[in-house]
């Protein structure tokens, strides 16, 4: 017997088992998608009875355990903003102090963030939920870190002015 024949003989049963398992998984997952009861009896397909019950048990356990995991809403919106900025060819915010895109508010808009606005929340900058309508307005950069620095400078100037005010001492 050649090496190839030996290999084929060894792989033959494994391949057949794998095909049976594949057919069973197709049925199992199709049932799950169609909303079949998670632990109820599943319809049989030809050859399913040949599958090792331990494999059937493992497949059912994995169907119940391996659920899709959603990212956080904040991450979803932040990445959506990065993609929009990439399309517009805008430098993207990565850290505090970096310029961030800012959309001008329509004159008749109600107070509060408009969709797509960058909103400062504590030390974080997030995009306002829900999608902006047209994306063709050019974003206007705002430097959050710079604004804080400007505020501190103004406070310093005010303090010096107050100390040097006429009539003190």
């Amino acid at each position: 017997m050649t090496f190839g024949e030996t290999l084929a003989e060894a792989w033959g049963p494994l391949r057949e088992d794998a095909i049976q398992t594949d057919a069973y998984l197709e049925m199992l997952l199709a049932g799950a998608t169609a909303g079949a009861a998670p632990t109820g009896d599943l319809p049989t397909v030809e050859g399913t009875a040949l599958i090792d019950p331990a494999l059937v048990g493992a497949a059912r356990a994995l169907r119940d355990a391996l659920v899709r995991i959603h990212p956080s809403f904040r991450f979803e919106e932040r990445l959506a903003g990065r993609l929009r900025a990439a399309v517009d060819g805008v430098a993207l915010p990565r850290a505090a102090g970096d310029p961030i895109p800012f959309r001008s508010r329509p004159t008749d808009a109600a107070p509060g963030p408009i969709p797509g606005d960058v909103v400062a929340v504590g030390r974080l900058s997030v995009l306002a939920p829900s999608l902006p309508e047209p994306l063709d307005r050019l974003p206007r950069p705002v430097l959050i870190g710079g604004a804080i620095a400007s505020g501190v400078s103004l406070a310093g100037v005010a303090l010096v002015a107050w100390r040097r005010r006429p009539g003190r001492h």
């Binding site: 494994l14 391949r15 088992d17 794998a18 095909i19 398992t21 594949d22 998984l25 494999l55 493992a58 497949a59 994995l62």
Partner: peptide, 8 residues
């Protein structure tokens, strides 16, 4: 198919 079968 073989990978999935073995993993299972």
């Amino acid at each position: 198919r073989v990978l999935v079968h073995r993993a299972l």
